[in-house]
C-alpha cells in the first residue's frame, strides 16, 4: 500500500510537470509576447503605461531570457503562489482566485455529489429490473443526457423558467446578496439558485455513470458468487446490495478519473451561459482577450484540481478493492 501510494504520488508530480509544460506552451502560442501586444492595445485605445511597470513585468517574466528560463521563472512563481498579474482585470491573479474559487468548488463538488447520489440508485434499479418500464425510461433519459450539450440544456432550462414561470435562473445570488457577507440568508439564497447549474452539469455525467454502473452490475449479477450467497440463505435484496453492487462499485469509483475532467469542462460552459460568479467566465474573458498568464494559471489550476481528484479516487479504489490494495492488479 505504501509502495502504491508512493508510486501514485510520483506519477502525479510528473503529470503535473507535463501539464505545466503544456500550459506554458499555450501561453507562448499567440504571436508576439504578451506585454508588447498589451502595450499596443493600450496605446491603440489612447491609454499609456508607465515604462517602469513595463520593465518590472519584463523582468518578472524574464521576457528577454531564453524560453527555458522563462518557463522556469513562470513555474517558480506558480510554486510560490505568485500566479501573476491579470493585465486585463488589473488585479493579481491570486486575488481573483481567492474571490471565486470557493464558489467554483462548491458548484462542482455539489454536481459530483448529485451525480453519484442520483446515478447509483438509478443504475442499481436499471440493472436489477432490467427491461422494466423504469429501466427503459432511465435509458431514454440517459441517451438524451448524453446527446444534449450542456450549454443547450442550460439555454432551454433558462428559457423554460423564464417564459413559463417568469423566473430568471442566471447567477448564483440575488442582487442584494451578490456582494454580501456569508449569512444564513445568503446561504439560502445560494441554495435557491444553485440547483439549476448543478442540474445542468450533473445530467450528462449522471447518464454516463448510470450506463457504466448498469453494465457492470448486469455482468456481476450473473456471477456465480451471487448464487453462492443466495445458497447460504441470504435474502435476495441483501445479496444484491452486499455482493454484486459492492463489486460493481469498484469500476464506478475508478470513473472519477474521467468524471472530474468532464464536470470541470461542463461546469465551464454552464457557468458562462448561466453567468455564474465562478472562475470559468474569468477564463473565457482571459482567453478572448488573450490574457494568457491569467488563462494559463487558471488552466493549470483546473488541472491540479482534476489530478487531486483522480488521486483521491485511486486511493479510494485501493481502499475498497483488496485486489489493488494488495498489489494484484493495476489501478486501471
Amino acid at each position: 500500500m505504501t509502495l502504491y501510494l508512493v508510486r501514485r504520488l510520483v506519477t502525479m508530480l510528473l503529470t503535473l510537470l507535463a501539464l505545466s509544460v503544456v500550459v506554458f506552451v499555450v501561453i507562448q502560442l499567440p504571436p508576439g509576447d504578451f506585454i508588447t501586444s498589451y502595450i499596443a492595445r493600450l496605446s491603440g485605445s489612447g491609454e499609456t503605461i508607465d515604462q517602469a511597470v513595463i520593465d518590472t513585468l519584463r523582468e518578472r517574466y524574464q521576457m528577454d531570457a531564453p524560453i527555458l528560463a522563462q518557463y522556469w521563472a513562470w513555474l517558480k512563481g506558480m510554486l510560490h503562489g505568485e500566479f501573476g498579474y491579470s493585465f486585463e482585470m488589473k488585479l493579481p491573479v491570486a486575488q481573483i482566485f481567492s474571490e471565486r474559487i470557493g464558489i467554483s468548488l462548491a458548484v462542482e463538488l455539489l454536481a459530483v455529489v448529485v451525480m453519484w447520489a442520483v446515478a447509483i440508485p438509478i443504475g442499481i434499479y436499471s440493472a436489477v429490473r432490467q427491461y422494466s418500464i423504469g429501466d427503459y425510461f432511465a435509458t431514454v433519459i440517459g441517451f438524451f443526457g448524453l446527446a444534449v450539450p450542456n450549454f443547450l440544456f442550460a439555454l432551454v432550462l433558462m428559457y423554460i423558467c423564464y417564459v413559463w414561470f417568469g423566473v430568471t435562473i442566471t447567477g448564483l445570488f440575488s442582487p442584494e446578496y451578490m456582494n454580501a457577507k456569508w449569512s444564513l440568508d445568503r446561504f439560502l439564497d445560494f441554495v435557491q439558485h444553485v440547483w439549476a447549474p448543478v442540474l445542468v452539469i450533473a445530467t450528462a455525467g449522471t447518464a454516463q455513470l448510470v450506463r457504466v454502473l448498469r453494465a457492470n452490475l448486469l455482468d456481476e449479477l450473473n456471477k456465480p458468487y451471487v448464487l453462492t450467497a443466495r445458497a447460504k440463505g441470504l435474502e435476495k435484496r441483501k445479496v444484491i446490495m452486499r455482493y454484486p453492487v459492492r463489486v460493481a462499485m469498484n469500476p464506478l469509483v475508478s470513473t472519477i478519473g474521467w468524471v472530474l475532467p468532464t464536470v470541470i469542462s461542463s461546469s465551464f460552459v454552464t457557468a458562462i451561459v448561466l453567468n455564474l460568479p465562478t472562475l470559468s467566465p474569468i477564463l473565457l474573458r482571459a482567453l478572448l482577450s488573450q490574457d494568457m498568464y491569467l488563462a494559463g494559471a487558471l488552466i493549470l489550476f483546473m488541472g491540479v484540481l482534476t489530478m487531486i481528484g483522480t488521486l483521491i479516487s485511486d486511493l479510494l479504489l485501493a481502499w475498497i478493492d483488496p485486489r489493488i490494495r494488495l498489489g494484484m492488479v493495476g489501478a486501471n
Partner: peptide, 13 residues
Amino acid sequence: MIFQEPMSSLSPV
C-alpha cells in the same frame, strides 16, 4: 452447495 468455479463463486472483495 458448492460450485465448479471456486474463484468466481467466492466474492472477490
